[in-house]
């Protein structure tokens, strides 16, 4: 592995990691407020990407409004999903609620497949396609958009949670729904906000990544899986921890490609990433179990 190659692995690892982090953020927000693992999170990402393509190319809307509109539609679908599927299931346990999100994911995927067909699409780059040279490596402008968006989203999210009334209420709900209810916070309203926010962030992720990865109706599951892993490495805790989790995952996967060790070729990169995940989890198992027991 030469130095140039190493920098290149880091750069592409950071890009991939940002993608995973953006998806993971949605998992973290919903989990913190409701304790639900939302298996439909990947579908919001897919929706963001597909919508941006169809709004730009079919409806002819200019880039910026089309992107904003895609994110808003994704957020609305997240809110609708909460109102119609999650909130109606009053008696359901958390496991049942997770199954509902699986059903919702399959439903959204199916509708997308029927409505948009099965071909993959790629919306145009935000700004140019000429890649930029950086310390012997190359980085695509769209990758800069992805990394930049992730940073902006996580900073805004942090500010939102720390300095606004709604954000603080969300945080309170995450710590203890019962206590939050006692001081007059409506946990249901908070859950609604969490779903819409998570869907919006998923949509933002889809919108910025679609130009560089292409998107089809079937992409939600794999993207969601990687986002889920990113959120778990971060411990489903704070947005910043999730982003660190995502970046770790991306860089591990990317560096695993560079490993030439006997039979372990790049075919094992995801397996290596999962081994790292298992190790992190097991090393921290004592603390994690204590947390779960408290919650």
């Amino acid at each position: 592995m030469s130095a140039d190659q190493f920098v290149q692995y880091l750069v592409s690892g950071l890009t991939m990691g940002s993608i995973y982090a953006l998806i993971g953020l949605g998992f973290t927000i919903i989990y913190a407020v409701t304790r639900i693992i939302n298996f439909a999170q990947g579908e919001f990402v897919m929706l963001g990407g597909m919508l941006s393509f169809y709004l730009i190319s079919a409806a002819g809307i200019p880039l910026a409004p089309a992107l904003i509109l895609s994110v808003l539609i994704a957020a609305a679908i997240g809110a609708i999903m909460y109102i119609f599927a999650i909130r109606t299931a009053r008696r359901a346990s958390v496991v049942s609620l997770i199954i509902i999100t699986i059903g919702a994911a399959i439903f959204i995927r199916g509708i997308a497949g029927v409505g948009w067909g099965v071909e993959h699409v790629r919306p145009p780059y935000f700004t140019g396609s000429e890649s930029i040279s950086l310390l012997g490596a190359y980085i695509h402008p769209q990758a800069l958009w992805i990394i930049g968006t992730t940073l902006v989203v996580v900073v805004l999210l942090h500010l939102f949670l720390s300095y606004t009334m709604v954000g603080k209420a969300l945080k309170a709900c995450a710590i203890s729904p019962v206590a939050a209810g006692m001081v007059g916070i409506n946990p249901r309203a908070m859950a609604l906000i969490a779903f819409a926010l998570a869907a919006a962030i998923g949509g933002i992720g889809g919108v910025v990544m679609a130009p560089s990865i292409s998107m089809d109706f079937n992409d939600g599951f794999k993207l969601g899986l990687m986002g889920f892993v990113a959120a778990s490495i971060g411990g489903f805790k704070s947005p910043i921890a999730t982003v660190i989790g995502g970046l770790t995952l991306g860089i591990v996967v990317s560096l695993a490609v560079g490993v030439d060790w006997g039979p372990f070729t790049s075919a094992y990169k995801d397996a290596i990433a999962m081994m790292v995940l298992l190790l992190i989890l097991i090393i921290r198992s004592g603390r994690l179990s204590a947390e779960e027991r408290e919650s």
Binding site: Q5, Y9, S12, S212, L255, S266, A267
Partner: peptide, 21 residues
Amino acid sequence: DDQTFDNDDTSMQSQLAHIGG
């Protein structure tokens, strides 16, 4: 060089950087 990727992977830059070497 002999690199692989999975379907639905989001980027092949690392593999290609390896080939570039």
